[in-house]
């Protein structure tokens, strides 16, 4: 699960997208209250465009995208919740990344 948010925090929240799980239905993009998601330029391995956080400064991490997603591929979170969670489990970092999926940036 990777974040599409740039390294610097410009909004109140961000989204995490499992790129390879996405089927490109556009529900998240269409119903994002902040209108901050767009389709990726790239395709995932199944041949779908997936959502990217095109306007990170608008994202508030409300997870409306995550509530619509029929494939459980996207999840929005507020930075303050992320920080709280990461503080509680600072000891374990690298283990979590075993489940991360590579972004669909295949050459």
């Amino acid at each position: 699960m990777v974040s599409d948010s740039p390294g610097k925090r410009v909004g109140k929240g961000t989204v995490f997208v499992k790129v390879e799980v996405c089927k490109g239905c556009a529900y998240c993009i269409e119903f994002c209250p902040a209108d901050c998601l767009r389709f990726s330029r790239n395709y995932n391995a199944k041949g779908y465009h997936y959502p990217v956080l095109a306007k990170p400064e608008l994202c508030v991490g409300c997870n409306t995208c995550g509530q619509y997603c029929p494939d459980f591929a996207i999840m929005g979170m507020r930075y303050k919740d992320i920080d709280a969670l990461e503080a509680t489990k600072s000891a374990v970092n690298d283990d979590d990344r075993s489940g991360a999926e590579a972004p669909g940036r295949k050459s």
Binding site: A54, G66, M77, P103
Partner: peptide
């Protein structure tokens, strides 16, 4: 299909979600 304007090189792939999607 509205494709992102962002240069996808900027997309940060180093960060992982602190929790698994709870719905799962």
């Amino acid at each position: 299909i509205m494709v992102s304007d962002a240069d996808e090189k900027d997309v940060d792939t180093s960060r992982v979600a602190p929790i698994e999607n709870p719905v799962l």
